[in-house]
Design a protein around this nucleic acid. Structure first.
Ligand SMILES: [Mn+2]
Ligand SMILES: [Mn+2]
Ligand SMILES: [Zn+2]
Ligand SMILES: [Zn+2]
Lengths: 134, 134
DNA sequence: TTTTAATTTATAATGATTCTAAATAAGTGT
DNA sequence: ACACTTATTTAGAATCATTATAAATTAAAA
C-alpha cells in the first residue's frame, strides 16, 4: 500500500471524498518525519499554486474538524496549524515566527489549583516565547 | 490629586501627550478594581462613540508599547488586551469568549526543561481553555 | 503667543478568512 | 460502463480586524 492509498483510506474512513486536491495536501502535511507547524500561506507555497486558496482553507478546516490538524494559539494576526494533534506545548521564536514543539518530557506537568464551578478544562497549553539572546 | 491628574501625569511621564481622548480611555481602562480583559470592540462600546476607532487602536497600541497594557495570546481572530501587565496565566471560557486571570498561586510554577542555544525566554504563558461541563 | 510636532480623525487600504454560486468530480447504485 | 446525487472545487466577492494616509486639530515647548 503506497502513501496515496493510505491517504485515500484515511479520507474515506472519515467521510471525506478522496479528491486529488486533498491527497496532494495530505502529502505535503503528513509525509514527514517531524511535526509540521504552518500557516495557510506556508502551505500554499508548498502546493505551488496548484490548488486554489479557497480549497486550502476548506481542507485545513475540514482536517481540523476531523482531528488531523490542530490550531495553535499564537498572539498573531494569522492562524497556525500543527500536524501534531497530541497534547503538547510550544516555543514560539519571535524573531522568526517559528513554532517548536515542547514534548511532555520538556515541561513539568502544569498543575492548575483553581477550579471554576460548572466548567471543565478542555486543554492546558503552555506557550514559551523566545528571542535571540545576542 | 484626582484621577484625571494622575492619568495626565502618567501619560506625560511616558512621553505621551495628555489628550482628552487618552484620558477618557485611561478612565475606562484603569479606574477599576480588578483586571480588565477586553477587545477593541469591547473598549469602543465603553467609550460610546465619543472617540474614533482609529484613535482607540492608536491608543491601545501606544499603551501596549509603554507597558500599560498586555496583549493576550488567544486562538482567535481578534486581539485581547489585559490591564494586568504582570506575568500571569488565564482561563479562557470558550462558551463566552471570556478571559479570567490565573494568579501565581493558582498555577504551579511552570518548569521548562528544554533550552534552545542562542535564545532566551521572554515569557511563559499558560492558557487553560474551559467550557460548560453540563 | 507663536511655533512645532504629536495626535486625532475620516477614510482608504490591507490581509486573513469566509461566503457564494456555478462548474466539476467522487462515490453509489444500476 | 452509465447515470445520479451530492460533495467539492474554484474564482471572485464579501467580511472583519487592523493599519495606513493625510488633512485638521491641539498639546506643550519656546
Ligand atoms: Mn499582534
Ligand atoms: Mn479561529
Ligand atoms: Zn506542535
Ligand atoms: Zn489577565
Amino acid at each position: 500500500m503506497n502513501n496515496n492509498d493510505s491517504f485515500i483510506q484515511k479520507l474515506r474512513s472519515s467521510g471525506l471524498k478522496a479528491t486529488a486536491q486533498r491527497i496532494e495536501i495530505c502529502k505535503v502535511l503528513f509525509n514527514r518525519d517531524k511535526t509540521f507547524h504552518f500557516t495557510i500561506y506556508d502551505l500554499s507555497k508548498f502546493l505551488n499554486k496548484k490548488i486554489s486558496l479557497a480549497t486550502i482553507y476548506n481542507t485545513v478546516n475540514a482536517f481540523k474538524k476531523k482531528g488531523y490538524l490542530k490550531e495553535i494559539s499564537i498572539n498573531s494576526d494569522k492562524s497556525y496549524y500543527d500536524t501534531n494533534v497530541s497534547n503538547h506545548h510550544h516555543f514560539f521564536n519571535e524573531s522568526t515566527n517559528e513554532l517548536i514543539d515542547l514534548h511532555n518530557k520538556d515541561v513539568e506537568k502544569v498543575k492548575i489549583k483553581k477550579n471554576i464551578p460548572g466548567k471543565k478544562i478542555k486543554s492546558i497549553e503552555v506557550l514559551v516565547k523566545i528571542e535571540n539572546s545576542n
